[in-house]
């Protein structure tokens, strides 16, 4: 009976840890999972393993995960190109070398955040209004608009260092998000 309960609890807590929306909660669920695991080891007459699991699973790895989570921040970039029917590797490659890679390098090395790029062909205004990206690259003809929040320190740094990040910035325009909402449309 005890065995059944503890094993089912293990599976349930593992599912909680995997499907939780919040990483912090996942870490706590993992700690609880380790605790239940230690109980299971105890039930199977392995107290040595149970102590090791309790010391490492509950203590060490939980604290390690918490500190790691505190350190890694994700910076979310969205690339919008409305003129493309279906995105493929060529379209992404055309902007990759000139724009995305230098920006990723800048974010990683100078700002120390994890860059995360997504691509879409939805209308830029829709993306701006509905989705909460840190930075949006919008390609319209030859011009590239960079949308971002004026209060965001990382975005300020990107704008300030834009001439070092991107060698050819003739076709680049910077738009702060507040202006967009005031005017109702970009530019």
């Amino acid at each position: 009976m005890f065995e059944t309960i503890i094993l089912i609890t293990l599976v349930v807590i593992a599912c909680f840890a995997v499907f939780s929306d919040n990483l912090l909660r996942s870490i706590i669920y993992l700690g609880v999972f380790s605790l239940a695991m230690a109980l299971a080891y105890l039930h199977y007459n392995a107290p040595d393993v149970a102590i090791a699991e309790a010391a490492i699973g509950v203590g060490l790895s939980t604290v390690m995960y918490l500190v790691a989570l505190k350190k890694v921040s994700v910076y979310d970039i969205c690339y919008v190109n409305e003129n493309i029917e279906q995105f493929n590797d060529d379209h992404i490659g055309s902007i990759m070398d000139s724009f995305v890679r230098p920006m990723e390098l800048f974010l990683e090395r100078t700002e120390e955040v994890e860059p995360q790029i997504s691509y879409t062909n939805h209308p830029a205004l829709e993306v701006l209004a509905d989705e909460n990206h840190d930075c949006i690259l919008h390609r319209d003809g030859d011009l590239i608009y960079i949308y971002g929040d004026a209060n965001d320190r990382i975005f300020q740094d990107i704008i300030a260092n834009l001439n070092t990040i991107i060698p050819d910035m003739k076709d680049v325009r910077v738009v702060f998000k507040k202006e967009v909402s005031l005017n109702g449309q970009a530019e």
């Binding site: 102590i51 010391a55 203590g59 604290v63 390690m64």
Partner: peptide, 21 residues
């Protein structure tokens, strides 16, 4: 009793790590 060098060392390390907090 159950335990040993590795487990005890891990608990001591946890104490030092909680000092970091």
């Amino acid at each position: 009793s159950p335990g040993g060098g590795f487990q005890g060392g891990a608990i001591l390390a946890t104490a030092l790590i909680s000092r970091y907090l």
